[in-house]
Every structure is written in structure tokens, then in C-alpha cells.
């Protein structure tokens, strides 16, 4: 019952530690998603209506962030910001959120483009102010088409939180590694960490697929 490569005692010891790390993973995913959802919309609207003077720099920054790896951004941001921001976790969450902001902005852009021209025209015919047109007509219709993509990005953010390891944030995979380093037993901790990821993301992805079908 106890093969040499698997030790249930180790598994039982590391499991609660992993769950502690998992809390950080979840927190990072939720807050990162929140940041990406809000900032992504702001970026998409800026890129649509702002004058070129503002739009161009925003576009360059967005392209730059999208074209460089998350890991590099984490290390770089930590290097630059750690003298000013005490919490490495806060830095990690912002980097993750802003990284995905660039993807969400693209999703919103497509969503905004998918709103029929006649909707804008009806808003003009009713003399709705521009801000109200966005808030009441365009954004609700644009967002409806972005929900599945949003869900998929949330899952992929979730799966990228282990990169936090490069700036020593004690999320689940870092906990698993530390435990392995201390005890020379990696198998149990890493296997369990993987299983916890699977158990969390698989039902979520099924849910998103159902949502996709419902919206289609």
C-alpha cells in the first residue's frame, strides 16, 4: 500500500499546506480577473474614442505587454517596484491583472465592433448622450459576447499563477516546491498540487462551455 515513490504520510502533511497556498492562487486569480475586466474595458474604450495623442501610446504599451512573457514582467516589476511596494503578492496580482488586461481589451474590442451600427443610430435618433449610449446600449451588448472569453482567460490566469514562484510568492506550487526541498519528497506535493488545479479548473471550464452554448 505504500510504494517507495508515494508516501501517504507526506501527502497528508503537505495537503493542508497546499490548501493554504491555493488560497493565494485563488485570490490572485479573482483579483487579477477583476483588474483585467475593468482595465480591459477602459483600454478598449480609449482605443476606440480617445484622440490619437492618447490612443497611440496606449496601443504601444498594450502591444509591448502582450508581446513579452509574463515571467519576465513579474521579475522586472518586482525589481523596480519592491522598494516602493512591500507586498510581493500585490505586485504579482497587478502584473497578472495588467497582463491579461491586454487580452481582455482585445475581447472587448471585438465585442464593441459586434454591436450593430443601427444601435448607435437609434441612440443618436433618441439624442442619448454619448456616455449613456456606451453605458446602456453598447457595453451591455458588447459584454454579452465577451463572457466565454472572459471565463477562458480567468482559467488561464489561474493556471499561470505558478509563475509567481519567480518572485517567491507562496502560492501553491511554491509551497509544494519548498516542501519538496525541505523533505526531499517532491512526488506527493507536486502531484497533489496538480490534482488541486485539475479539480478546480475542469468544472469551471465545463461551466464556461455551457455558457458559450447558451449564448450562441
Amino acid at each position: 500500500m505504500n510504494p517507495s515513490w508515494w508516501d501517504w504520510n507526506h501527502a497528508a502533511t503537505v495537503f493542508p499546506l497546499l490548501l493554504q497556498g491555493f488560497k493565494i492562487t485563488l485570490l490572485a486569480t479573482v483579483l487579477g480577473t477583476l483588474i483585467a475586466v475593468v482595465l480591459g474595458l477602459v483600454v478598449a474604450i480609449i482605443r476606440r474614442i480617445a484622440p490619437t495623442i492618447i490612443r497611440n501610446p496606449v496601443t504601444w504599451v498594450v502591444e509591448f505587454i502582450r508581446m513579452t512573457p509574463l515571467v519576465v514582467q513579474l521579475v522586472f516589476a518586482n525589481l523596480v517596484l519592491s522598494p516602493y511596494i512591500e507586498s510581493t503578492l500585490a505586485i504579482g496580482i497587478w502584473v497578472l491583472g495588467i497582463h491579461y488586461t491586454t487580452y481582455m481589451a482585445e475581447v472587448y474590442r471585438a465585442g464593441i465592433d459586434s454591436v450593430a451600427k443601427g444601435q448607435w443610430e437609434a441612440a443618436t435618433a433618441l439624442s442619448l448622450p454619448v456616455a449613456r449610449t456606451w453605458r446602456a446600449v453598447v457595453i451591455p451588448q458588447a459584454i454579452r459576447n465577451t463572457l466565454p472569453a472572459l471565463g477562458n482567460y480567468a482559467i488561464s490566469m489561474f493556471k499561470e499563477t505558478p509563475f509567481f514562484v519567480v518572485i517567491y510568492i507562496p502560492e501553491m506550487v511554491r509551497v509544494a516546491q519548498t516542501y519538496g526541498g525541505d523533505t526531499f519528497r517532491y512526488t506527493e506535493s507536486i502531484t497533489l498540487a496538480g490534482l488541486i488545479f485539475l479539480v478546480a479548473s475542469y468544472p469551471t471550464s465545463l461551466l464556461i462551455r455551457r455558457l458559450e452554448k447558451k449564448l450562441a
Partner: peptide, 24 residues
Amino acid sequence: VFQHFNLFPNMSVLENIIEAPLHV
């Protein structure tokens, strides 16, 4: 009034009608 109606699909019939009276 347009050829293709252009009602707001994210609003009910009533909400379509009161949108501008409320906000304009």
C-alpha cells in the same frame, strides 16, 4: 423610425421606450 426597427435588444419593450425620456 428605421426600416430595421433598431430596438435595443438588451432592454425590455418598456425600457426601450422610457430610456430617452429618463436620460434625455
